[in-house]
Amino acid sequence: MDLGLVGRANAGKTALFALVTGADAEIAPYPFTTREPARAMADVPDPRLQAIADAQDIPRRVPAQVQLVDIAGLAAGAGQGEGLGGAALGQLRQADALLHVVRAFANAEVPHPEERVDPVADAEAVDLELAIADREQVERRLDKVRKGARAGEKGAVAELPALERIAEALDAGRPARLVGDDDALAIALDMGLLTAKPVLYIANTDDQLEPPEGLAAHAAAQGAQALALPVGTELELAGMDPEEAAEFAREMELGETRGADAVVAGAYRLLDLVTFFTGSGPPEARAWPITRGTAAAQAAGKIHSDLERGFIRAEVVGWEDLVAAGSWSRAREAATLRMEGKDYIVQEGDVIQVRFNV
């Protein structure tokens, strides 16, 4: 899962990047600390994976991973290629989703570009730059497709109406994800349009655990989701002894799912992902995130293309049943393991062994 970070200068993007990935990053109270795009990977903690491996004495545990890309804060003109953020927008076109960090904290030592804290105005400003960048990309594609359509090229003739619908949506102030046409949305996603991607607005708060009402309403209107996270506080806690940090978090009533875990969980909800596992015995147990509703054959293809091509059946057991049984063979004896065909829809927490022949 690849996630791109966007936001205005001094919104806390780089602090969030450091919190989730644990990577060293310069965090300072002045604009454009991030001058070059930064990338880092982070494991997705999942105690179910450890339980599956522990129950069967599997030595190697491979968690799912998330990659974050952090670019410079966006300023006016970024969508037209101006400034550091504008130059880096292309780095986000391959991301699966965007994390839009919005300032909602009141620290006077961290200046705001407009010397005020207004989460909705900041969100709208960044959204506008993304839309401008998309509109320019669509116009370039339209120029090419119109020429092809005039020449009678079938592909261009078919694509032109969809591109025009995307342009109309952007001109009307709607993100491409709300174009309202499946064919047009598929083209927008294939083009890597930034406003076509799922978006999670993250309100960087002082200590509030709910996003400001105005920002939550803006997110809903944009076909997006929102959460609140006191990034600075969480970053401080991440540097403490775990037990001491947990005690402070309880005293501050920061909730059960916090910090980097809250961000990753929010991204999973945004992309509607579920996790299945492989690990019917040594040498490894592994977590695999897939889109909810994925059939067994396609899930097998996530592991390896040969498994999808030669798929015969899947042996499936719930992770809790496997842990209770203690081994794959004992789960089979207990009749908690079952055979499923290629059209079986993989469920959250399934442990799967694929039978195939190529």
Score class of each variant (00 low, 15 high):
Gly155Asn: 07
Ala156Glu: 06
Ala123Cys: 09
Thr205Glu: 11
Glu129Gln: 12
Leu193Gly: 08
Ala186Ile: 02
Val138Trp: 11
Gln137Pro: 04
Ala123Pro: 05
Asp143Tyr: 10
Ile132Ser: 07
Asp122Leu: 03
Pro198Gln: 11
Asp171Thr: 06
Leu128Asn: 02
Asp171Met: 06
Asp207Gly: 04
Glu153Gly: 00
Leu130Thr: 05
Val126Thr: 01
Asp127Gln: 14
Arg165Asn: 05
Glu124His: 03
Lys154Tyr: 06
Ala125Leu: 11
Lys147Val: 01
Ala176Glu: 10
Gly180Phe: 08
Glu129His: 04
Glu168Tyr: 06
Arg140His: 14
Asp134Gln: 03
Leu128Val: 04
Ala149Asp: 02
Asp122Cys: 01
Gln137Leu: 15
Glu139Ser: 10
Leu130Trp: 00
Arg177His: 12
Ala121Leu: 12
Arg140Glu: 09
Glu136Met: 15
Ala172Arg: 15
Glu139Thr: 11
Gly173Ala: 04
Glu153Trp: 01
Pro161Glu: 03
Thr205Lys: 15
Asp143Cys: 06
Ala188Gln: 06
Ala121Pro: 00
Asp182His: 08
Glu159Asn: 09
Val126Gly: 00
Lys144Ile: 00
Glu153Asn: 11
Asp206Arg: 04
Lys147Met: 04
Leu194Lys: 10
Arg146Gln: 14
Asp207Gln: 07
Ala184Pro: 08
Ala176Phe: 03
Leu163Phe: 00
Ala133Ser: 10
Pro198Val: 12
Ala149Arg: 02
Ile187Phe: 02
Ile202Met: 11
Asp207Ala: 15
Pro198Ser: 14
Leu194Asn: 09
Ala131Cys: 10
Pro198Lys: 15
Leu163Cys: 03
Gly192Ala: 07
Ile166Phe: 04
Asn204Pro: 01
Glu164Ala: 07
Asp190Lys: 14
Lys197Val: 09
Glu136Leu: 15
Thr195Gln: 13
Ala162Trp: 04
Ile166Trp: 08
Glu139Asp: 14
Arg141Glu: 13
Asp127Cys: 04
Asn204Met: 13
Arg135Val: 01
Ala203Asp: 08
Ala158Trp: 03
Glu129Arg: 07
Arg177Gln: 15
Asp183Gln: 11
Asp190Val: 08
Lys154Leu: 09
Arg135Phe: 13
Pro175Gly: 11
Glu159His: 01
